[in-house]
Amino acid sequence: MRHPLRFALTISLILAGCDGPPNAASDAGSSADASPPPADGGSEDGGETGEDASAPPPGDTLSARYPDDVGIGGDPAVLFHDDFEAGWGRWDGPTADTRTLHIEADPATAHGGRGYLRSTVTTADLEEDTYVSSSTWVTHERADAIYWRFHVRFPELAPNPHHWVRMAAGVEGWDASGLANTVPPGDEGFWFDFDTNTDDVFNFYVYWHKMRSGRCNDGTAAPGCAGDQGSTYYYGNVFQPPGQAPFPRDRWFCVEMHARANTVGESDGALAFWIDDVAVGDYRPGHPEGTWLRAEFHTGGCDFSACTPPGPFEGFEFRSSSDVRFKSFMLDAYYERDSDARRRAEMEERGLTVSDARTILYDDVVVATERIGCRR
């Protein structure tokens, strides 16, 4: 898998005809002040739950059938599994430790067993390089619907990545995910990032052939439109569930995502995620109610003058060819010098003591075609 280019220009836009904020040309996500994380993480109100995203009975998950994940890699539904107990052998790249990535063995730190993956990007790294991508990736058997679970720990109080982990779909030879300000062809591929902002909450950041532009209030790119920003750009469309509590620092928690490609010609694609097996985000045809404004879907509606009344989410028309299928994923802590400095300044303005080491730990990674659940 070609190492993708991951960058996003942060630009200052003068709003025209709308008193809402600029869209995803800047860091995606809420700008509300962070509050101390609760003991159990997850969502304050249970998130945007719904039939598709609600957790199945315990016996219906892979983790329930394979306690401690013992034998889970042999299940026919599993496309990839790594608990980092055997080194780098299961990843397409890298195949050995790098400056920012290390597989380590410490049972007191690991989520399970001894092994785990550590990503550390320092202030010195960003002084040397404007863009730092601390990433590992895998190309797997292609599938129309996918689940991806991993356990993660943020041991330091430090700026979160500019962009974080990513799942990509495509035809067999397509390998162009991660390009900023790009509308991917519907018959070739699409992708989404799963990001976290300075409030330690999560959002999907999605690129697909029917994505909306940030130029106009209605998501189009016609000059002279309502809210015209004066230039056309296509950064990832943002889906951030409201009511999230900040994730917990310095303890392991579980992230699981689900993505379903659409039937060609229909808008029945879906995205969902769970934190510690609690449904938080759920986007599918008819759910949730919300309002589009430029390139962001506001669950429940929004209060800016350009906001239209909320209505049911229409679902995703991710692809125009059935040969476009989920094929790869990436653990990528991607940092950009200027946005990192802004995030650091925002945290320090809140009175926080910020580390120079941006460390993220990963363990117990599973990709499958059915619901996985957290390691039990």
Score class of each variant (00 low, 15 high):
residue 87 G to C: 12
residue 103 I to L: 14
residue 375 R to F: 07
residue 369 T to L: 02
residue 238 V to I: 04
residue 224 G to V: 13
residue 108 A to H: 07
residue 249 R to P: 08
residue 226 A to C: 12
residue 213 S to R: 05
residue 20 G to E: 05
residue 117 L to A: 11
residue 128 E to K: 11
residue 69 D to P: 08
residue 251 R to S: 10
residue 250 D to Q: 11
residue 110 A to C: 11
residue 251 R to L: 05
residue 346 E to A: 11
residue 109 T to S: 11
residue 326 F to R: 07
residue 287 H to Q: 06
residue 75 D to Y: 05
residue 354 V to W: 06
residue 325 R to A: 09
residue 199 D to P: 03
residue 191 W to F: 02
residue 270 A to K: 00
residue 3 H to F: 09
residue 170 G to S: 06
residue 210 K to M: 14
residue 15 L to N: 07
residue 366 V to L: 04
residue 107 P to H: 14
residue 267 S to Y: 06
residue 240 Q to T: 05
residue 218 D to Y: 11
residue 323 D to G: 06
residue 336 E to R: 03
residue 49 T to H: 10
residue 244 Q to V: 00
residue 316 F to A: 11
residue 20 G to P: 05
residue 6 R to Q: 09
residue 355 S to C: 01
residue 226 A to P: 15
residue 289 E to K: 02
residue 97 D to H: 03
residue 361 L to C: 10
residue 243 G to H: 04
residue 18 C to T: 07
residue 92 D to A: 09
residue 277 D to P: 06
residue 143 A to S: 13
residue 295 A to M: 10
residue 164 W to K: 02
residue 180 A to W: 04
residue 28 A to P: 11
residue 235 Y to L: 03
residue 283 Y to W: 13
residue 273 F to P: 01
residue 46 G to I: 06
residue 240 Q to I: 05
residue 63 S to E: 09
residue 373 G to H: 08
residue 273 F to W: 00
residue 330 M to D: 10
residue 295 A to P: 08
